[in-house]
Design a protein around this nucleic acid. Structure first.
Lengths: 252, 252
DNA sequence: TAGTGGTCTAGACCACCAC
DNA sequence: TGGTGGTCTAGACCACTAC
């Protein structure tokens, strides 16, 4: 089997997005600053205005810019904070991007027959196994996320032996890369639901987090899908004590 | 002053969105069903393929459809549930759309000098007043949302007297309509942050909700902006007991 | 190979805003 | 009035999937 992944040129629109994100993050376009007009950017990068507008659409959805008809396109004042709930990001990167020293500990990993609910969510047949992983992420050596993943065996069995897959460091710390590159199953989207609870009601081993049993916890339960809309992972994330800010742009 | 609002034809793209949402909701295109190809829809509705694709972009962001290159566009299996966190919806409609009998009670309303934090969030000068409203939404006569709003006086003072604005039924139950039609300040987007806590830590009068002090609460704190990106409302919503499902699509 | 969605273009016209 | 973003078109080519 040829192991080379096909190298594909990102779309012009994506390249424009990357360029502009970079310029905004580096302060070349500070908050409240008007971006150059669409037509100017189009000729500057030698693409059509449609392509620029496509890039702007995505920057707007990311919350980086806002557009005013007849006036211009502006960098949003709040653009630098943001831990966007509407986008999926590796926790490891997330923690680092928020200015903390990221850490990762795998609590356990095993191949199991899944509980019925997980089996249904992952659309599996009765005899299919899943990998269950419990793990913790740290920020400056303090645990801030407890997380359980379930991965169907079919996702990884062509690329990893049952022993290999159990090792820490195989899936994390680059979760999305594990799926995209190592398993050839890029994650297309997650369907998540968000709820609230207290720590003592969460199935987390007591000695892991060392927090008050009544600490409030934000819980995100999500199913991730591949390009063919087949579920490839279920994940429950416990965020105790509101140490992270979850931000979100809601449109009318 | 002329009180007629300008009647504007919604864009072709929006009309296509409405048509398709309607057909999906009514089961004309059931879950997993392929939608007609883009070219076919384009000629069917006598618009360009670009226009159809614009509509599909929005349906995809709403989580109603998913697209597979080389295969087709499909109605998502989970399309009917959804209480989308990434979209702003009137609570009254939300409760009704989830199959409950909606109710609304205004606890209090008064014009005040805002606390510093609110004043800053709403970008107000020292001497400007805000309307502070406490309210509760009911589903089948049970309180399920406690909510506090702060509205700058400049938003409504041209359209309501200081006495009128305090009356219940002026702002709710159609929140978005109040802003868009009564105040000529359509809401463009909200910046929200989501966190978790327990009821006893929330500034909610005890006799209102009648729940355990340790009930987990999902808290959404958000600032709403008008078309000119000026903040026109701050709102804190307390959702106790996870009676509502908050769903979300997260993209890579 | 035929048909699908993904990207891109060049150009047009409109609505809105500031001057 | 000129410049901005918002919408739309007709057509082209590509990448991917199924057969």
């Amino acid at each position: 089997m040829d192991d080379r992944a096909p190298v594909r040129q990102p779309s012009l629109s994506s390249q424009i997005v990357d360029i502009l994100v970079d310029k905004i993050r580096k302060g070349k376009f500070p908050p409240d600053c008007p971006l150059p007009p669409e037509n100017q950017l189009a000729s500057e990068y030698d693409v059509s205005r449609t392509t620029i507008r496509g890039a702007f659409d995505r920057l707007e959805a990311m919350g980086l810019i806002t557009r005013r008809q007849g006036v211009g396109t502006f960098v949003r004042r709040t653009s630098n904070i943001s831990n966007p709930l509407n986008k999926f990001v590796d926790f490891y990167c997330l923690i680092r991007d928020n200015g903390f020293e990221p850490g990762y500990r795998q609590i356990s990993a095993r191949l199991i027959v899944p509980p019925d609910e997980i089996r249904q969510d992952l659309q599996l047949e009765k005899d299919q196994l899943v990998l269950e992983i419990h793990k913790v992420f740290l920020a400056d050596n303090t645990p801030i996320i407890y997380c359980t993943n379930w991965l169907p065996e079919w996702v990884f069995q062509d690329f990893f032996s049952p022993e290999e897959i159990l090792l820490p460091g195989v899936i994390e710390p680059n979760f999305t890369e594990f799926f995209e590159i190592k398993c050839r199953q890029p994650l297309k989207y997650f369907i998540s639901d968000v709820r609230s609870d207290v720590l003592k009601n969460c199935p987390i081993p007591e000695n892991i987090l060392e927090m008050e049993p009544l600490t409030p916890v934000l819980i995100i339960n999500e199913i991730g899908f591949n390009e063919q809309d087949r579920p490839v992972i279920q994940s429950i994330e416990y965020h105790p004590g509101n140490r992270m800010k979850f931000q979100l742009i809601r449109l009318g």
